[in-house]
Write a protein that binds this DNA or RNA. Structure first.
Length: 743
DNA sequence: TCGCCAAGACTTTTT
DNA sequence: GTCTTGGCGA
C-alpha cells in the first residue's frame, strides 16, 4: 500500500517527515525538497499523529511561502486546518500582540508602519531633538535602531561608546515615543515586542507554550535574535520544534539574521536530531559542482555534497561584455535564439542582479526586443504615491492618531492647508495632550463651537472641513462596505481628477488606485484592520506566482522574470542569467572590508546559481556608466573559483566605444527572422573623433586636463568628457571648447 | 499656499 | 542620468 503522505520521499526526507517528538534540525540544501518536507511533516502530524491543527504553529518568512504550505497541506489532510497558526513571523507576532495588547502601551488596533513611514518618523524624531540631519542621516539612524531592535535591545539597553551611539539612543527613545502616540509599531517592533512580552510575562508565555504542541519553522537560517528567542519561548513547554534551513542560503544578515542560529540550536538542544538533505531535484550536476566550488570557500558551515540524478548537463557559460548595454543585449539575444528555435518559452528564463538599479538597462533591452518580462520588487506598486495616499486615508480612518498618515494626506489634494496651519494644529494638539487627528475630528464635529476653533484662528475652517470628512468616514466605516468606503473617500476629496490628468502617467496612476481597490475586495468580510495589516506585511516576494501556477493570462508563453538575487531565493528557472559579476557589484563594494559580509555575498551568488535547472549564464561588463563617467571593474573573484572544465568562456562583443547613433541601432535585433542575429557593432564606418580618451588637452578657461571620453552625435557634433586639474569633471562641446591637444 | 525650477544627492539587499 | 529637496515667485 502506498501512503500519499510518505510516498516518493527519499530516505532522508522520510526520516525528517516522520521524526518523533523533540527537536529536529533539517539541513536542506537548495532544491532538496525542503518545502515538501515541511508540508508533509505538517500533514503527517495532523493526519497520522492526530495533533489538532489548533495546537500547531508554523512560521515562514513570506506570505507566499505560508500560502503555498497551507494550500498543499489542505489537499493532503482530511481534517480542517481551523485554528492553526500558520503565517509569517511578522503576521504571527501581530496576531499575538493584538490579543495581548493590554500588556502593551498600544491599543489592539495599532497600525504597522512601513519602511517609508518609519523613516519619516525617525526624521521627525531627529528634528524634535534638534540634531543635525546632515551628519545623522535618518536612513542611517533608522538602520541602527532597527539593528538594535533585532538584537532585542530597548533604548535603555543600548551600549554607548561613541557620540554617534548616544545620538542613536536618544533618537531611538524619541522614535518609540512617537510610535506610541501614533498607536503604531514598526516591522521590528512586531518581533521585539512579542519576544519581550513573552520574556517579561511568564504567564502569557506559558499560555502559548502550552498550547503549541508543535512549532515548525521555515528558512531558519534567516532568523534573528528576536525570532530565535520567540521560538524558544513558544516551544518551551512541549519542546517539539522542527526547523528547516541552510546556512549557505542565509542572505539577510543586514536585517539581523544570523545563520549561526543553526549552530546555536544544536547547542541549546544537544539531544536534537540533525538530518541532512543532499539530494538535489533541480539542477544539473555541472551547476551543482560549480556552486559548490563557490560556496566551499566559506568557513563555519556544514559541508554538503549536493548530488543529482539528472546528469552533468551543459556547461556554464561566461560572457564578458564591453559595457552594461552589451551585457543586456547578450541576454536578450540569447533568449531570442531560444524562443525562435522553440526550445523554451519566456517564463523559463530569469535575469538576476545584485542591485535594483541594474534592472533598468535590462528592461529597456526587453522593451526594444518586445519580449514580455515581469519585474519583481523595487516597490513598484506599494511604493507608488497614489497607492500610499489611499492607504494613508484608510489608515487615518482606522486610527486618527496616526500622524504620519495625517501629514501625508491633510493637504492632498491641496485644500489650502499649508505648513503654518499644520503647525498650528500640532501646537493645539500638544497643548491639549491629544493627537492632531483628535483635534481635527473635534473641529470637524463642532465647527466654530470647538474649543480649538479660536485657538487655531484663521485657518480653522479649512481644518474643520477636512475633519468633518474624516468624521463621516469613521461613522460610515461600520455601516458600509470597505469598497464603498474606498469610493466614498475618493469622491469626497476629489482624488480622481487630482491624480488623473488624462495623460498617460495620469491614467497609470488611476489604474493603480483601481488595483488597490481590487485588493480591498478580498477583505470585504475581514474588514479594514485586516486589510491594512495585510498591506503593511505583504512583500514583493508575494507577488511572484506560486511554483507551477502561471498567471492566468494572455501571453501563453508567460514572461521573463527580472529580479534581485535576494528575491530569487526559493525559486527556480530553466535558464538563469546572473549579470554584473564584477568586483564592486558582486561582491558589492560595501562588503569589501568585512569578511562576514564578503561571505554573505558569496552565499548570495550561491543562491542565484542554484536557482538554475538547466543552464546558467554568468555575465559581466568591463565598464558601466555611473552618472556621467565610466566605472571600470575587474571580474568578480567568484568567477575565478569555478574551474575551467565546468564553464565555457565566450568572447566579448566588440563595441569599442559608446556612440549615440548606435544606441538606436543597438536594439535592432531581428525578431521576425528565424535566426535572430546578434548585432555586432563595428567602428569602421564612424567618423573619427578628434579627441581620444587619454589625450592631454588645454582649455583657455579651465587649464590642463585629460580626455576621458569622446563621442559624436548624429549631427556630427563631438562631445568630450574632460577631467581638469582645476575644476574636475566637465562635459564640453568640442566645437566650442577649443581645446588644444598637448599630447 | 502652491507650483516651478535648480541644485544636490544618489546605488545594496527587504519582512 | 534620475529622483528628491529646497528656494523663490505668483
Amino acid at each position: 500500500m502506498t501512503d500519499p503522505l510518505l510516498d516518493s520521499l527519499n530516505p532522508r526526507q522520510h526520516q525528517a517527515v516522520t521524526a518523533g517528538d523533540g527537536q529536529i534540525l533539517v539541513l536542506a540544501g537548495p532544491g532538496s525538497g525542503k518545502t515538501r518536507v515541511l508540508t508533509r511533516r505538517l500533514a503527517y502530524l495532523i493526519e497520522r499523529k492526530n495533533i489538532p491543527a489548533y495546537d500547531i504553529i508554523a512560521v515562514t518568512f513570506t506570505n507566499k511561502a505560508a500560502r503555498e504550505m497551507e494550500n498543499r497541506v489542505v489537499n493532503m489532510v482530511q481534517r480542517s486546518l481551523e485554528g492553526i497558526w500558520l503565517g509569517t513571523f511578522h503576521a504571527m507576532c501581530a496576531r499575538l500582540l493584538r490579543r495581548e495588547a493590554n500588556y502593551l502601551p498600544y491599543k489592539s488596533n495599532f497600525v504597522i508602519f512601513d519602511a517609508d513611514d518609519q523613516e519619516a518618523l525617525v526624521k521627525r524624531a531627529i528634528r524634535d531633538l534638534k540634531i543635525d540631519e546632515k551628519t545623522h542621516r535618518p536612513a542611517g539612524v533608522h538602520a541602527a535602531i532597527s539593528a538594535a531592535k533585532n538584537d532585542l535591545l530597548l533604548p535603555a539597553d543600548m551600549p554607548i561608546r561613541t557620540y554617534r551611539d548616544e545620538v542613536v539612543a536618544r533618537v531611538y527613545t524619541r522614535y518609540q515615543e512617537l510610535l506610541q502616540t501614533n498607536n503604531a509599531v514598526d516591522f521590528d517592533d512586531l518581533l521585539l515586542l512579542a519576544a519581550r512580552l513573552l520574556q517579561e510575562h511568564p504567564g502569557v508565555a506559558e499560555k502559548y507554550a502550552r498550547r503549541f504542541q508543535h512549532v515548525l519553522v521555515d528558512e531558519f537560517q534567516d532568523t534573528n535574535l528576536a525570532q530565535y528567542e520567540l521560538l524558544k519561548q513558544l516551544s518551551s513547554y512541549h519542546r517539539n520544534i522542527f526547523v528547516v534551513g541552510d546556512e549557505d542560503q542565509s542572505i539577510y544578515r543586514w536585517r539581523g539574521a544570523d545563520y549561526r542560529n543553526m549552530q546555536r540550536f544544536e547547542k541549546d538542544f544537544p539531544q536534537c536530531e540533525k538530518i541532512l538533505l543532499e539530494q538535489n531535484y533541480r539542477s544539473t550536476q555541472n551547476v551543482l559542482d560549480a556552486a559548490r566550488q563557490v560556496i566551499d570557500r566559506n568557513r563555519n558551515r556544514t559541508p554538503k555534497h549536493l548530488f543529482t540524478e539528472k546528469g552533468a548537463g551543459s556547461k556554464l557559460i561566461q560572457f564578458t561584455a564591453v559595457d552594461e548595454v552589451a551585457e543586456a543585449s547578450f541576454v536578450v539575444d540569447t533568449i531570442q535564439q531560444y524562443l525562435a528555435s522553440r526550445r523554451a518559452v519566456a517564463s523559463d528564463f530569469a535575469v538576476m542582479y545584485r542591485t535594483n538599479a541594474q534592472s533598468r538597462i535590462i528592461e529597456e533591452a526587453f522593451i526594444h526586443a518586445r519580449i514580455p518580462y515581469r519585474l519583481i520588487g523595487a516597490q513598484r506598486f506599494y511604493g507608488r504615491r497614489e497607492v500610499k495616499d489611499m492607504i494613508a486615508f484608510l489608515r487615518l480612518v482606522e486610527n486618527p492618531a496616526d500622524e504620519v498618515s495625517l501629514l501625508r494626506v491633510i493637504a492632498v489634494p491641496p485644500r489650502g492647508i499649508g505648513e503654518k496651519t499644520i503647525s498650528g494644529l500640532q501646537a493645539a494638539a500638544f497643548r491639549a495632550g491629544i493627537s492632531a487627528g483628535e483635534v481635527l475630528l473635534d473641529l470637524g464635529r463642532k465647527g466654530p463651537d470647538s474649543a480649538y476653533w479660536a485657538e487655531i484662528g484663521r485657518s480653522a475652517a479649512l481644518l474643520a472641513d477636512f475633519g468633518s470628512l474624516l468624521d463621516q468616514w469613521q461613522s460610515l466605516r461600520d455601516q458600509i462596505s470597505l469598497i464603498s468606503l474606498f469610493d466614498r473617500i475618493i469622491a469626497d476629496v476629489g482624488y480622481e481628477p487630482y491624480i488623473n490628468d488624462m495623460s498617460e502617467e495620469g491614467n497609470d496612476r488611476w489604474e493603480n488606485v483601481q488595483e488597490l481597490r481590487r485588493l480591498a475586495y478580498d477583505f470585504q468580510e475581514k474588514g479594514l484592520t485586516e486589510f491594512l495589516q495585510n498591506l503593511a506585511l505583504v512583500s514583493d516576494q508575494d507577488t511572484i506566482p506560486a511554483n507551477g501556477i502561471e498567471e492566468p493570462q494572455d501571453r501563453s508563453q508567460g514572461a521573463v522574470t527580472l529580479l534581485t538575487l535576494h528575491a530569487a531565493k526559493g525559486l527556480e528557472f530553466n535558464q538563469v542569467f546572473i549579470i554584473g559579476l564584477d568586483e564592486g557589484l558582486l561582491p558589492h563594494s560595501r562588503s569589501r572590508d568585512d569578511p562576514e559580509e564578503m561571505a554573505e555575498e558569496r552565499r548570495l551568488f550561491y543562491v542565484g546559481m542554484t536557482r538554475a535547472k538547466n543552464q546558467l549564464y554568468l555575465l559581466r561588463a568591463e565598464r558601466r556608466s555611473s552618472f556621467g563617467s565610466w566605472d571600470y571593474s575587474e571580474p568578480s573573484r567568484f568567477l575565478q573559483d569555478i574551474s575551467d572544465d565546468l564553464m565555457l568562456v565566450q568572447g566579448k562583443r566588440s563595441v569599442s566605444r559608446r556612440d549615440s547613433r548606435l544606441d538606436d541601432m543597438r536594439w535592432v535585433t531581428t525578431g521576425v527572422s528565424s535566426t535572430p542575429r546578434t548585432v555586432y557593432k563595428t567602428t569602421a564606418a564612424l567618423p573619427e573623433s578628434k579627441y581620444k580618451p587619454g589625450m592631454r588637452v588645454r582649455s583657455a578657461s579651465f587649464g590642463e586636463g585629460l580626455i576621458l571620453e569622446s563621442k559624436i552625435d548624429s549631427d556630427g557634433e563631438e562631445t568630450v568628457d574632460v577631467h581638469f586639474e582645476s575644476v574636475g569633471f566637465k562635459r564640453l562641446l568640442a566645437s566650442l571648447a577649443n581645446l588644444e591637444i598637448l599630447s
